[in-house]
């Protein structure tokens, strides 16, 4: 137990975890409804979309890149799937999910090729593809919503697992959260146990050394964008399973939220740093802030101010914490 505690306090995620705990305590004092299983499931369910995209963003950030096109990719996938389901109402869920992921992967592949073959800086390449794809989709759909999804599809979104009594009701874990967890496990396995995953860290740490060690930088880079695109596709499915309709405008501009989640969770936009656990904390922090602001009855006019301050404080604390740690390390070196 002591060892676990020691590991935890040593880990990079400690400051964000602390902030979540502090926020949670404050919110619970004002509104006890906050700390219930059903509330937790509700907020995680609506934030699972952002969570899945953030988990896709994580490897991109670790490799030293950035993907601003997640917003256009998720919109593209959602619209493609909506049109597909309208045309083929007799299809099944596996085909629908696979379709979304393939479309997302293709969008990611384009980004990957622009970055690796034409050496366009990632932020620019993905800004370009985002503008183009988003404009094309909105031009094509005119922003009209797509509804009338088949029943088998919508009922898939209502699946719940287990039965936990909470606040006088029995709630189960929604399938959207299962998606999030599965994606989290997959990302963790890839980053930790595959050659590709180690390559991602290596490329993000230092491209030259990674090349010398023998990693194929192009392949690693292309992979992270494809992975991000694929997960954006999965996020599209998750979204439609929640809101049951497709609004092509919903996700314009969401890429900054997604990046914020990953970075709040300790990933560095400079590359080389980031963990799945941290990203999960980022998702929870974002969800808690959004949910908490309403629960503690902050006036809507002040919500953005409070949110901005919390983000600034969190990242500042994180940075200062790391600096202190670094200073301590140097100190030890000097003593020896």
């Amino acid at each position: 137990m002591q060892k676990v505690w020691k590991n935890l306090t040593k880990s990079k995620e400690i400051s964000i975890l602390a902030i979540i705990v502090v926020l949670a305590v404050c919110i619970t004092i004002v509104n006890p409804n906050f700390l219930t299983v059903s509330n937790f499931f509700d907020i995680m369910r609506s934030n699972s979309i952002y969570g899945i995209m953030a988990l896709g963003m994580l490897p991109v950030l670790i490799s030293g890149g950035i993907d601003l096109s997640v917003s256009s990719t998720i919109t593209l996938c959602a619209v493609v799937m909506g049109k597909f389901l309208q045309a083929n109402p007799g299809s099944n869920i596996v085909v629908a999910i696979l379709l979304c992921m393939v479309v997302g992967a293709l969008a990611g592949l384009v980004n990957g090729l622009l970055v690796t073959k034409f050496h366009i800086p990632p932020i620019v390449a993905t800004l370009g593809t985002q503008t183009i794809v988003m404009a094309a989709v909105l031009f094509y759909t005119n922003g009209m919503w797509i509804s009338g999804m088949p029943d088998w599809f919508l009922s898939f979104g209502d699946i719940q697992f287990g039965a936990i009594p909470s606040a006088g009701k029995v709630v189960g874990m929604p399938i959207q959260i299962l998606f999030l967890i599965l994606v989290g496990i997959a990302t963790w396995l890839i980053l930790k146990y595959t050659l590709m995953g180690r390559g991602i860290y290596a490329v993000g740490g230092n491209v030259q050394s990674a090349t010398r060690v023998g990693y194929n930088v192009s392949r690693v880079t292309t992979f992270v964008y494809i992975y991000s695109g694929t997960l954006a596709g999965l996020a599209a499915v998750t979204d439609i399973l929640i809101v049951k309709q497709i609004d092509p405008n919903t996700f314009s501009g969401c890429e900054l939220d997604v990046i914020a989640i990953a970075v709040l969770g300790g990933a560095s936009v400079m590359g080389g740093i980031g963990t799945v656990f941290g990203t999960f904390l980022g998702i929870i922090l974002m969800a808690v802030i959004k949910n908490g602001l309403v629960l503690v009855r902050v006036s809507s006019y002040w919500q953005k101010v409070v949110m901005g301050i919390i983000i600034l404080v969190t990242i500042s604390v994180d940075v200062i914490n790391r600096r202190i740690e670094k200073a301590r390390l140097v100190h030890v070196d000097v003593e020896e």
Binding site: I242, T250, V294, S300
Partner: peptide, 26 residues
């Protein structure tokens, strides 16, 4: 109960905000 709740013209946000709202003001 409070000032108007903004939802950025988004159905997703209207959905989650309303959920929060209904929990805050049972």
């Amino acid at each position: 109960v409070a000032d108007p709740f903004p939802t950025d013209e988004s159905q997703d946000l209207a959905y989650s905000t309303t959920q929060d709202l209904l929990k805050t003001y049972p």
